[in-house]
Every structure is written in C-alpha cells, then in structure tokens.
C-alpha cells in the first residue's frame, strides 16, 4: 500500500468515525506535521460533507413527497380550524339573536335600516348588542358583508356611502336603554346612511380596533363599522349639525382631508379600521378632531384643498381628547 492510499484510508476512517481514541490522537499529530495530509483531509472533508448534504436532501425530498393529510382527529386538533369554526358558529348565533331583537324593535317601515335590513338575509345582518366579541374573524365577516352590501349601493347610486353622524351621548343612551331606535331619513338620499343623533338608528354592536382584537382584549362600547357608520362626538342636541363624511379610498401612505360645502372628504387607506370624528362646540367656536389608529388629528373646517391630516402632538390636548372620546 502506498503512502498516499494509506493516508486516504486513514482519512476515510477518521471521517467515518472509525478510529479509536488513540488512533485519532496519533492521526491528529501526524496531520499537524504533514501539510500534504492536512490538505488532503480538508479536501476529503469537503467531499464527505457534500455527500452527506446530497443524501440528506434526497431523504428530505422523499419525506416531502409523503402526504401528511390531516385525518378527522387532526382536523379537530387543529386549533386554528377549531377557532374558525367556533367563530363562525358564534357569529351565526349572535347575529341571529341580534337580528331578532332588531326585528322587533326597529321594524318601522320605510326607514333606511328597514330597507337595508330587507335587502339582507337574517344571517347576513350582523348586529350585536353590547357583545364582547373576541375574534377578528367575526369582525372581518361583519365588515366584509356590510362592505359588500354598500358597494352594491354605490354601484346603483354612484354614491359612496359612509356618511356618519352619531353622538356619544346618544350611544350612551342606547347602552342604557338597550333599545336603539330607527331613524327616518325620508328627506335624504336613501343611499346615504345618515344617522342623526336625535334619531339614532344604530344597531348596537361593538367594533374593536383589529389590533385590540388580536390582543384579545375585552371589547366594550358601541361603535359602528367605519364602512357605513362612524362615531362623532359632542354635538349639540339639535339636528342639522351633522357633518357628512365621504371617504375616498386611496393607496397613498398619508391620510388627507378637505371640507367642501360642510362635507368632510377623507382620502387614504384606512385599512378597514375605525375612525372617529370629535366635535367640540362652544358658544362661539366649533373644533373638530379626528381620531384614527390611536392618534388624534386636528381638522380645519375651512380647509378647502386636500391636505394631510395634521397630527396632534400636544400631550395635554391628546389627554383631553382621550378623556372626551372615552366620555370620562
């Protein structure tokens, strides 16, 4: 046996783990003194490494080809699936219950919500009274359905439907009474969902920020889906102070607004999240603030051209607005 082939065999045994402790020790000593052997070892290490990787990939490919389809037990054990089914069931039950309540309490003919309700099947009409819903899925379902419906209205009337007006005090009243009433907006375009504070027609269900839902915090309070109805706050009790809001979906990063003929136009991507309009009236002044994504913005009601929403950084003002918004 030549020196080289003896070396090769030694290296092979070393790489295969076939050397005893003493053999390994003398091999290492030999390697340190012989640069050719050392170079050969590095070369062989690379080859053996490549062979190992090759086989590993081969076996992994084999395993990837095996169907690990989930059986019935697996399906039931799949938590995500379980959650989804539970959420859909809950939504169905709660939605149906709420519809029954609304059906009894708001059944005034000719009103907007009455018409709206008629256009939806019972299962499609998601209303929940003071519900503490904890799953995102439910809200996505609700907002998608409502959104779809309003998109239909948009198509027929060529009008965006997200005019909003609801007073916080009225919402509180609703919470107390738990008997929301139906608005009659006979003088308005039927595609506009105008909710007057004196004639609130809001099926009361809580709408969480999706972030909050993810954190599974308890959802409380009454808000409405921003696709159709939003909260405004602190208005006088007289009808006629209503600020119509028209939301125009744009993909630009910043949120913008303008006022035109007393109507607030919002531009941007609100990502289906709730926004609120806060209105503070005094004898001589009227201030408007906008709340979105845990931030407050100042609105200038005389702003005629499109402008970025101006973020309020004054901590004191933010704190005050926070108190006002939460009606504390």
């Amino acid at each position: 046996m030549t020196n080289f082939s003896r070396h090769t065999e030694l290296i092979d045994d070393y790489l295969s783990g076939g050397l005893s402790a003493s053999e390994e020790s003398s091999f290492m000593e030999l390697m340190e003194t012989d640069p050719i052997l050392k170079e050969e070892l590095l070369f062989q290490q690379s080859i053996v490494g490549g062979l190992k990787e090759y086989r590993k990939d081969e076996l992994k490919q084999r395993l990837n080809g095996i169907s690990v389809g989930v059986g019935l037990m697996g399906f039931l054990m799949n938590f995500a699936t379980y959650k989804l089914v539970a959420a859909v069931l809950t939504l169905g039950i709660v939605g149906y219950g709420a519809f029954q309540i609304i059906d009894n309490d708001f059944g005034k003919p000719g009103s907007y919500i009455d018409n709206y309700k008629e256009s939806l099947s019972e299962a499609d009409y998601p209303s929940v009274e003071n519900a503490n819903l904890k799953t995102t899925i439910e809200w996505i379902e609700i907002s998608n359905r409502v959104d779809d419906h309003f998109k239909e209205l948009e198509n027929t009337k060529n009008q965006i439907v997200d005019n909003v007006y609801i007073s916080k005090s009225e919402i509180d009243k609703q919470e107390d009474d738990k008997t929301p009433k139906l608005a009659e907006n006979s003088d308005k375009n039927s595609s506009d969902l105008m909710v007057s504070k004196s004639k609130v027609t809001v099926p009361a269900f809580s709408l969480p920020q999706f972030d909050d839902v993810l954190e599974e915090e308890t959802l409380a309070g009454i808000e409405l889906d921003d696709y159709n109805i939003n909260n405004s706050d602190f208005t006088s009790d007289e009808a006629g102070d209503e600020i119509e809001i028209k939301k125009i979906q744009k993909n630009n990063r910043s949120l913008q607004y303008k006022f035109r003929q007393g109507k607030l136009y919002l531009f941007g991507d609100f990502k289906g999240k709730t926004y609120e309009l806060l209105e503070i009236n005094s004898a001589s002044d009227r201030k408007l603030y906008f709340y979105f994504n845990k931030q407050y913005f100042k609105l200038d009601q005389f702003q005629k051209s499109v402008k970025d929403l101006s973020l309020i950084t004054d901590r004191r003002l933010v704190k005050e607005l926070e108190i006002i918004r939460n009606n504390r």
């Binding site: 790489l15 295969s16 783990g17 053996v48 062979l51 190992k52 090759y54 086989r55 590993k56 081969e58």
Partner: peptide, 8 residues
C-alpha cells in the same frame, strides 16, 4: 457512497 457516509 451516500449510504456509507450519511446513513452510516
């Protein structure tokens, strides 16, 4: 080679 070096 792969049986020998990877699988052992």
């Amino acid at each position: 080679l792969t049986y020998h070096y990877f699988d052992g």
